[in-house]
Computed example of a mutant assay.
Amino acid sequence: MSDAAWSEPVRGVGMVWARSTDGVIGADGGMPWHVPEDLAHFRQVTGSATVVMGRRTWDALPPRFRPLPGRRNVVLTRDPSWAAEGAVPVHDLATALDTDEPVWVIGGGQVYAAALPFADRVSETVIDVQVDGDTVAPTLDDGWQRVDDGDWHQSRNGGVRYRFVEWSRRS
């Protein structure tokens, strides 16, 4: 299946992440690898949709990429006084997901866990490494089906293997 076929959530809420083969998605507030092809995939998948993230994920983005260009950047925060140029601060997940536009949840771990019951699909990049980390991807149970296993590719950045895997919630 082509990436273009997966450019929007099927029914509204998608989740996108990159994880190691042992499930790690983050370490010390960042990603424990750099795979340029994954970043390009992320840009392609999230397109011009609304992206929903936690405040720590916002803070982890390099300042030159905040807000993520071409997308409405919704940031979940518990701090009622928090504000950042280009961010739409919200204080609960229901408000973050209340839109008629396609939504992609982009992290972090707590936001993924809270949003999983509302998601219809997951686009994940599996990075063929095992790393230490402090944040792991949600576990997808038998309510999810893998719709595209993706082929393994070699990154031009150090030769690490990666693949794009697509999941859909079972009807």
Score class of each variant (00 low, 15 high):
A113M: 01
A113S: 03
A113P: 01
A114R: 01
A114K: 01
A115D: 00
A115W: 01
A115Y: 00
A115H: 00
L116A: 04
L116N: 01
P117L: 02
P117H: 03
P117A: 03
P117N: 05
P117E: 02
P117Y: 01
P117W: 01
F118I: 03
F118Y: 14
F118E: 12
F118K: 08
A119H: 02
A119R: 01
A119E: 02
D120W: 03
D120R: 00
D120C: 10
R121V: 06
R121A: 12
R121W: 05
R121P: 06
R121K: 06
S123W: 06
S123F: 05
S123E: 14
E124C: 13
E124I: 08
E124P: 02
E124W: 04
T125S: 13
T125Y: 08
T125L: 06
V126F: 04
V126L: 11
V126W: 05
V126N: 04
I127F: 09
I127V: 15
I127M: 12
D128A: 15
D128I: 08
D128W: 11
V129G: 05
V129C: 10
V129D: 09
V129Q: 15
V129R: 14
V129S: 10
Q130Y: 06
Q130R: 14
V131A: 14
D132H: 13
D132I: 09
D132A: 15
D132Y: 05
G133K: 11
G133A: 04
G133S: 05
D134W: 06
D134L: 08
T135L: 08
T135E: 11
V136S: 15
V136N: 09
A137R: 00
A137E: 01
A137D: 01
A137L: 01
P138K: 09
P138D: 04
P138A: 11
P138E: 06
T139V: 15
T139S: 10
L140G: 03
L140M: 03
L140F: 03
L140R: 03
D141L: 07
D141R: 04
D141H: 04
D141G: 13
D141N: 10
D141T: 03
D142Q: 12
D142C: 07
D142M: 07
G143E: 14
G143A: 14
G143I: 05
G143Y: 11
W144Y: 10
W144K: 07
W144M: 07
Q145S: 12
Q145R: 15
Q145T: 15
Q145I: 12
R146I: 09
R146L: 15
R146Y: 04
V147R: 07
V147M: 07
V147G: 05
D148Y: 10
D148G: 11
D148S: 14
D149Q: 13
D149E: 15
G150Y: 09
D151A: 15
D151T: 13
D151W: 06
D151L: 13
W152M: 03
W152E: 05
W152P: 02
W152Q: 03
H153E: 13
H153G: 11
H153W: 07
Q154Y: 10
Q154H: 15
